[in-house]
Simulated assay, not measured.
Amino acid sequence: MPFTFVRIDHVQLAMPPGQEPRAAAFYRDVLGMEEVPKPEPLASRGGAWFRAGTVVVHLGVERDFQPARKAHPGLVVKGIDELAAALEAAGHEVRWSDELPEVRRFHTDDPFGNRIEIIDAG
């Protein structure tokens, strides 16, 4: 191939209109991501951007929002047990999976019902 993929720049998830404070409460306050200001003209569309190291999540507004129940980002984390405890303490369900015996992981949902997979960095 004459080209090479280098990395994923970001993952885009959807959220309902006007829910930026709930997005910040989850992605910033629970997951510990930094909220990144959106540049204009994108900021006027609503939504929110978050970053933790090289992991970048964008939330865009959809008027007829439907949560992503199957499609999901898979985020690799050091300190998976601590993150699971923080999610549960904040009222978010943690669903551990043993379907891949060599991978320690769980699923949770953001406040809008979007599925998120958390994978142990080992």
Rank of each mutant, 00 (worst) to 15 (best):
P2N: 15
P2S: 14
F3C: 07
T4V: 15
F5E: 11
V6S: 09
V6W: 02
R7Y: 11
I8V: 14
D9M: 08
D9F: 11
V11K: 11
Q12G: 12
Q12T: 11
L13R: 04
L13C: 04
A14W: 01
A14T: 15
P16Y: 03
G18H: 13
A23K: 06
A24Y: 00
L31H: 00
L31N: 03
M33Q: 10
E34K: 04
P37V: 06
K38I: 01
P39G: 09
P39H: 04
L42G: 05
L42T: 11
A43I: 12
S44W: 07
F50Y: 01
F50L: 02
F50H: 07
A52F: 10
V56H: 12
V57E: 11
V57S: 05
H58Y: 13
H58Q: 13
H58N: 15
H58I: 02
L59W: 01
L59F: 00
V61C: 00
V61F: 05
E62D: 09
E62L: 04
D64H: 09
F65P: 08
P67Q: 14
A68I: 11
A68E: 12
A71D: 04
G74S: 14
L75I: 14
L83W: 04
A85Q: 12
A85R: 12
A85D: 05
A89I: 05
H92D: 08
E93M: 10
E93L: 01
R95E: 08
R95N: 10
W96Q: 09
D98A: 09
E99L: 15
L100R: 08
E102L: 15
R104G: 01
R105T: 02
H107G: 07
D109Q: 10
D110S: 02
D110R: 11
D110I: 07
P111W: 02
F112D: 06
G113Y: 03
N114F: 10
N114Q: 01
I116V: 09
E117M: 02
E117L: 03
I118A: 04
I118K: 03
D120A: 14
A121Y: 14
